[in-house]
Design a protein around this nucleic acid. Structure first.
Lengths: 211, 211
DNA sequence: AATATTTACGAACGGTCGGTCGCTTTGTTA
DNA sequence: TAACAAAGCGACCGACCGTTCGTAAATATT
């Protein structure tokens, strides 16, 4: 471990900047975000940021890392306590919506916002976001596949299709929440998937009762 | 009708500017869009834009109008030729995905992009976008309600829920298309809704065969 | 105690932003 | 033909953008 007080201090501010930048990025956009904005919010100087990242783009990529780490920690990890199969897929969906409802990020979902912001802007960041989306969909598809493999779902179910439906319900929730209310919107997102899963599951009773 | 050649010319450039601004807004964002950008793309002067809109915000609101008009013309109107009920709901979904696949807007969907861009930015534009989303969901819910009313769908179906699912599948399509391919993504969005509608319809044979 | 390293800062740079102003051009009207 | 009105342009403004640079302060090394 590093004991150097200078490096420790640098690492600490580095983390604080990333945390703040992630919050602001969900409001102003990953590109709309300005360095002065981030610096002022933390009471540090703008030029000091360049000691940690050589350019704005480098900071933006670091923010993507930060967002992924947060997502893994706050959405995926809690859901992995659920047993494998259809219950774990449901747990991820539920955990994700809980993340939105908790208002952790003022702009709702970093990745959803970023995807729509960069969907027509080629470049390093877009490529990075595309990789993240591929990873995420692979993860969801893997959960669905597992559910079929262990017999929670019949063999005819298309895991990719189920993953797509799950993702769609989640994305739509974070899009509509600020307008139509998070409670009502997330209820729709939950009951839609739950009803669908219970309808196709070989044993619906292992899933929660619909409310 | 106005016969004044000056006003006619103004109206013409006004339309051209809105058209161009709508395209660029889906790429750079409705707020990220710059007036120089729009002016240069049309070979007009930036200051000339202020003859038509007194501020950038006024232009942005006009772009929302333009987007709504395009959406009504290119998505809703063609779908309204389908008979009322579940077939019309399906036609809107199909027409919407066709609009995305045609690549009319380089950034995919103006409204989806704008919603995610402004979901945490209070102001006139956000209010306007919120009203548009409410209108759109009311429209979809109305179609679902109609399908229940005329007996295409059983009485137990929740129209709001069905509208939410339809919207979710559409939004997710435009989000994932640039990354995972429009063809595969829209196929998922189509088959997901079609299978669901056929599963709950009182007479599935009035809907297309699943592919 | 002297030197090296790392963080962080303030000042300044060129460039772009939204917006203003006065003018020319184009077309209408009397 | 003269007076007028609208469209559109070029020059310019202050503000903010990302970025660079020289320097001061804190810490580690010798």
């Amino acid at each position: 471990m590093t004991q150097d007080g200078r490096l420790v201090r640098g690492e600490r501010t580095r983390g604080a900047v990333l945390e703040q930048a992630l919050l602001l990025a969900t409001v102003s956009g990953l590109d709309g975000l300005s360095l002065s904005q981030v610096a002022d919010a933390l009471g540090v100087s703008k030029s000091g940021l360049f000691a940690h990242w050589r350019s704005k783009e480098a900071l933006q990529l670091a923010v993507v890392d930060q967002a992924r780490a947060q997502w893994t920690e706050r959405v995926i990890r809690p859901a992995m306590t659920a047993p494998p199969g259809v219950r774990r897929l449901w747990a991820v969906h539920d955990s994700r919506l809980a993340f939105y409802e908790a208002g952790v990020l003022p702009g709702g979902c970093f990745f959803a916002n970023a995807h729509f912001e960069f969907n027509a802007r080629p470049g390093v960041i877009r490529d990075r976001l595309a990789a993240e989306l591929t990873d995420w969909m692979t993860f969801l598809t893997g959960l669905a596949t597992e559910a079929v493999t262990i017999g929670d779902l019949p063999a005819g179910v298309d895991p990719g299709q189920l993953a797509y439906q799950t993702e769609a319900l989640g994305v739509c929730a974070v899009m509509q929440s600020p307008v139509l209310g998070a409670a009502a919107t997330c209820r729709r997102a939950r009951s839609s998937l739950l009803e669908h899963l219970r309808a196709i599951a070989t044993d619906p009773t292992i899933l929660p009762e619909p409310t």
